[in-house]
């Protein structure tokens, strides 16, 4: 495996089980992932789709599943012809309890050279993370006015 293109880490005041649910339940992802639903049975080899408003944007495959510690899936956007032709990259999410918080690490790797997908998503994870953290810690997604309710 090539070295990861990027690694993002955040600490969220929650439990590994709740975080796992937030990462794998479409009803939850819709709340913080800017309206996107992730749908899968989360078994190794199963498909996983990421979609919005009934349109499938990414067609992925579950590569590793070890609840509530690690999930890994291929990442394959299909909404753009060039991206659809690209070899899928690989996303890995690691959950580690650290006292009252859970350390969440996302690693994204195996992009082909001159990838069009890489620049399209590298800014996206911190946004998803920030929204996920707010959602789990306050019950509110970040898209709401951040000044209301703390």
């Amino acid at each position: 495996m090539s070295k990861p293109e990027f690694v993002y880490v955040t600490f969220i005041e929650t439990t590994p089980d709740k975080l796992w649910q937030a990462l794998t339940n479409g009803d939850f992802t819709e709340c913080y992932w800017f309206g996107y639903r992730l749908d899968s049975d989360w078994k190794v080899g199963s498909s996983m789709t990421l979609g919005k408003g009934g349109n499938v944007m990414d067609e992925c495959v579950i590569l590793e599943s070890d609840p509530p510690r690690r999930i890994s899936y291929s990442w394959h956007p299909i909404y753009d012809d060039d991206m659809a032709k690209e070899k899928p990259s690989r996303v890995t999410l690691d959950l580690e309890p650290r006292g009252k918080v859970v350390k969440l690490t996302v690693t994204h790797q195996d992009f082909p050279e001159h990838s069009k997908v890489l620049p399209s998503i590298s800014g996206g994870w911190p946004m998803v993370f920030a929204s996920l953290k707010t959602f789990l810690e306050t019950g509110q997604p970040l898209s709401l006015d951040p000044t209301s309710g703390t």
Partner: peptide
């Protein structure tokens, strides 16, 4: 953040805290 990759320890910039300040 650092990760082990084979025998190497690799350092990555983690923009998440800076993003949180912005948010």
């Amino acid at each position: 953040v650092t990760i082990r990759h084979g025998r190497e320890k690799l350092h990555y910039i983690n923009p998440v805290p800076i993003h949180e300040i912005g948010e």
